[in-house]
C-alpha cells in the first residue's frame, strides 16, 4: 500500500541520551494517525527521526516497504514524505511564492506551477499575497504558507507537527478541517498534537507517548475512553513531565 509508515523498535536521541525508547507505531495508508503526548514526551524527536534529522540509534523506520535507515533527509523527502514543521518554520525573508516553490523543491518548474495553482485554490489568500515577504504576514497566514508548502511536495505521507500551536481558536478549527481535507486527498497523515479533543475528533488511530515510550494506542474512540489519556488530558490527573 502506498504511504504506509512503520516505526519499529526505534531508539533515538541526542548525545547518547535516548529520548525515544523502543517506540513502535504504524501510520496506515490514507488514514490520520495521531501522536498524543505532552511537552518532552518525545513527539518532536519522533518526527526528527522519521525525517532523518535525528537518525535512530537502533530500530527501523520503514516507508512503503523501504527501510529509511542511513538515508539523508533529502532522500527521505524524495521517497514521498513531507513535513509541516512545528512553529511553521516559514522562510520569513522569502516571498510566499518562493516558500511554496521550496515545498516542491525536487519537482520541476512545470509540476511546481500546477501544484501552486492547486494550493492557491485551497488558500486564495496566499494567491493575493504571492509576492509578499512571509515574515510580514500574520500568524494565521504564515500557517497557511506552511501547510501549503507541505502540500506542494504532493507527499504520500505528511507529518504535521503541532499545527495549532500559537494560533487563535478560530484558526485552530480551520486548521483541523484542512487536515481532514488533506486526508481526503488520499494522503497518509501523521499528526502530532497537544490539542487532544480536536485531534481525536478527526484521527482514526492514535498513540500516546509518555517519556519517550508508547504507553497507549488504539482507535480514536478507544483513546477517548482510555484511562491514561483521560488522566493526562481530560481529567484531574497530574500531567506527566
Amino acid at each position: 500500500m502506498s504511504g504506509r509508515l512503520a516505526v519499529e523498535n526505534v531508539f533515538a536521541g541526542y548525545d547518547r541520551t535516548d529520548v525515544l525508547t523502543d517506540v513502535s507505531l504504524v501510520a496506515e495508508p490514507g488514514r490520520i494517525t495521531c501522536i498524543l503526548g505532552s511537552n518532552g514526551s518525545g513527539k518532536s524527536t519522533l518526527i526528527r527521526a522519521i525525517l532523518g534529522l535525528t537518525p535512530p540509534r537502533t530500530g527501523r523506520i520503514v516507508f512503503n516497504g523501504h527501510d529509511l535507515a542511513g538515508r539523508d533527509t533529502h532522500q527521505i523527502i524524495r521517497a514521498g514524505i513531507a513535513c509541516i514543521p512545528e512553529g511553521r518554520k516559514v522562510f520569513s525573508r522569502l516571498t510566499v511564492a518562493e516558500n511554496l516553490r521550496l515545498g516542491a523543491y525536487q519537482a520541476g518548474n512545470e509540476v511546481a506551477r500546477e501544484r501552486m495553482a492547486r494550493v492557491y485554490g485551497i488558500f486564495p489568500r496566499l494567491a493575493e499575497r504571492a509576492g509578499q515577504f512571509t515574515g510580514t504576514m500574520s500568524g494565521g497566514e504564515q500557517a497557511m504558507v506552511s501547510i501549503g508548502r507541505g502540500l506542494m511536495a504532493a507527499p504520500k505521507l505528511l507529518l504535521i507537527d503541532e499545527p495549532s500551536l500559537g494560533l487563535s481558536p478560530l484558526f485552530v478549527k480551520e486548521n483541523f478541517s484542512v487536515i481532514r481535507r488533506i486526508q481526503e486527498l488520499g494522503i497518509t497523515v501523521l499528526l502530532v498534537e497537544q490539542n487532544v479533543r480536536q485531534t481525536l475528533a478527526i484521527a482514526h488511530y492514535g498513540y500516546v507517548l509518555m517519556q519517550g515510550r508508547v504507553v497507549a494506542s488504539g482507535t480514536a474512540a478507544e483513546l477517548v475512553e482510555n484511562e491514561e489519556v483521560r488522566q493526562a488530558y481530560f481529567g484531574d490527573g497530574v500531567r506527566p513531565a
Binding site: H74, I77, K89, F91, R93
Partner: peptide, 18 residues
C-alpha cells in the same frame, strides 16, 4: 533559492528536500 533557504534556516531547507 535553495542557497537563500539554507542561509535562512538550514534544517527547514533540508526538510524541503534540499
Amino acid at each position: 533559492l535553495a542557497i537563500r533557504a539554507v542561509a535562512q534556516d538550514a534544517e527547514t531547507a533540508r526538510v524541503m528536500g534540499i
